[in-house]
Computed example of a mutant assay.
Amino acid sequence: MTAREALRGGLLAKLRTVLQPLAVTLFDAVPVRASVPQAVLGEPSESDWGAAGIEGRELRVTVTLADEGERPLRLRTAMQAVEAIALPDMLADGWRVGGWTVMATRMAKTGARWTASVEWRARLWRMGQ
């Protein structure tokens, strides 16, 4: 399993846990049709973060949230829950979390729809692979 797959699997599980009580539907790809509120986990970008004897990857991943209404109260609540996510120390297939940081957050309104995004940087490593 790649670092990308391990990160997406761990993050999808955490997102489901925090978004389900808020009645936000989570997608792992952009849906063709879906009602709001919704969240979409993007594809991570990936680069090397290794050293001698250590396989390491740095990944950046964004979740995008959408809702409608006059004020983004529900969206703000969902965004705060998403920002507070902490990954477990160990992900699938021996990948360990060496760093997990929120890098950027954004919120904007286009017409009747509010959109917010949270971008993280993850540093993952595994020994002896």
Rank of each mutant, 00 (worst) to 15 (best):
M1S: 15
R4F: 04
R4D: 04
R4M: 08
L7I: 05
R8K: 14
G10P: 04
G10N: 03
L11D: 10
L12F: 11
K14T: 12
L15I: 09
R16S: 13
T17A: 14
Q20K: 12
A23Y: 08
A23H: 08
V24A: 00
F27W: 11
A29H: 11
V30Q: 08
V32E: 13
V32T: 13
A34H: 07
S35T: 00
Q38M: 15
Q38N: 15
L41R: 10
L41Y: 01
E43I: 14
E43C: 02
E43K: 04
P44M: 12
E46R: 06
E46D: 08
S47C: 05
S47T: 14
S47N: 10
W49I: 03
V61P: 05
T64K: 01
A66T: 07
D67I: 00
D67W: 00
E70S: 15
P72Q: 06
L73M: 11
A78F: 02
M79F: 00
A81H: 04
A84Y: 04
A86N: 15
A86I: 08
D89F: 09
D89H: 03
M90L: 15
A92D: 15
D93F: 01
G94L: 02
W95L: 10
V97K: 00
G98T: 06
G98V: 05
G99T: 01
W100K: 09
T101C: 05
T105G: 03
R106G: 12
M107I: 12
K109S: 15
K109T: 13
G111F: 14
A112P: 13
R113F: 10
R113P: 13
T115I: 15
A116N: 09
W120F: 11
A122V: 01
R123A: 07
W125L: 06
W125T: 05
R126P: 02
R126T: 10
M127S: 12
G128Q: 14
